[in-house]
Design a binder for these strands. Sequence first.
RNA 1: CGGGGCGUAGCGCAGUCCGGUUAGCGCACCUGCUUUGGGAGCAGGGGGUCGUGAGUUCGAAUCCCACCGCCCCGACCA
Length: 488
Amino acid sequence: MAKEITPRTEDYSAWYNDIVKKAHLAENSPVKGCMIIKPHGFAVWELMRDALDVMFKKTGHVNAYFPLLIPKSFLSKEAQHVDGFAKECAVVTHHRLMNDPNGGGVVVDPTAKLEEELIIRPTSETIIWDTYRNWIQSYRDLPLLINQWANVMRWEMRTRPFLRTTEFLWQEGHTAHATREEAVQETLQMLDVYAEFAEQYMAMPVIKGVKTPNERFAGAEDTYCIEALMQDGKALQAGTSHFLGQNFAKAFDVTFLSKENQREHVWATSWGVSTRLVGGLIMTHSDDEGLVLPPKLAPTQVVIVPIPTAQAEVNEVAEKIMRELKDKGITVKYDTDDTKRAGYKFAEYELRGMPVRIAIGKRDIENNVVEVARRDTREKSSISLDNIGDSIQQLLIDIQANLFNKAKQYLDEHITRADNFDDFVDILENKTGFISAHWDGTTETEEAIKEKTKATIRCIPLDNEKEDGVCILTGKPSSQRVLFAKAY
RNA sequence: CGGGGCGUAGCGCAGUCCGGUUAGCGCACCUGCUUUGGGAGCAGGGGGUCGUGAGUUCGAAUCCCACCGCCCCGACCA
């Protein structure tokens, strides 16, 4: 084995880094915390982006683009917002470099200082609401349903590829509505879109919930989220949808005249998912052999490997299979590279997460079969060349379903009830995963539990049943359980 | 910003303690031949400001001083 991957049981974090590197998803950049997304990693993100974009458009949204640079003064207009983001903003202070008079290369030209400093967007609420003020006059201009695909920058102290990088790619939806009810409905609709995408495309089951005030987005009235569970028992916030109330409308003075000729502030939402999803995808399905991709997010779903190398009769069969698969909309690659051996290719495609591999040799052709290997279970079987298109199509469906079911079972088995603090700690440390427990509803208690255990409240599930109980820490009365976990 | 570790070929490392031929190994790369149903074998070959600067010395990857950078662990967070 030329490319060892650290086993998950030995060091989960090293395993994750190995997958990112060895599956050619991304590599480190010269700038700390940033990442170079390589073609294979970017192809996965593109598939995510394209699927989500279709879903956004189906729900009535259009795309636009707002600038990377934001006047510093904008950030301070919404008090909560500035609290949340000010300490992680990159700031542009100058607009020119010059040769160092002392011969030390280029230096910042001190005469090129900006009058108003600019910040690199950590999110775009401020510039968008500043713009919306001019776009919205009347109830006839509403709702305004806009999304943008962009990069943003948050100067985090500690970064990990895809999961938390200084610069990341994402989409941010920003909508304006005439009524509170409509904005809340939009917030929940987009949460549903995210949940559907996570489960149907990523095969990653999620829990829909609402954040506690403590975990809420800076400037939101309510933050809804989808939470997923990674293989190591830690939770991952995979997407958020915020009901912003009238906070930004008031901060940026965005008003409209209602049918009744009343001037009112608009109601707002924002919602986003990022390249973090790629990290979630990795940690939901992959194994010690490498990346495992669900067929719907695999840049290439099927690879055909000739054995030993491409020969006339193998080519003929391969071409026929490719035609059949392409007709069914399956992406397929015929690897005719004769500088690599079959065994090398097998290992390499497994590392990269290719869902299905077809091997064709003389022996197979004589028997009118091909060898089909599925990445999710690593099982190999001989499949008849007759109706190969249908067989492979069904196999891809099975793999997609199997990945989801496995992940769903893992999630279901790792939501554990705890009714006292000792059990809580025991489950958190030994079983891991989500813990469903009573909480007295105060930020103080939430912080105290975090302090003692590192676990945070991930969300209050939307489908929560009301149930009287007592807080696991304080013993005070509680009306429902909430989900705790250690989180990424 | 605290604690720990590390900078030597594209990657991973040895050599540094105890200074001394032409700085070495594995992978990768190039050429040729033989191979080819799970990361091929043999032979040959190319590739180095030893992180940077300034010292000590006849001589520095190795010793001294300063600086720079990176990684891991914590505090912050999607």
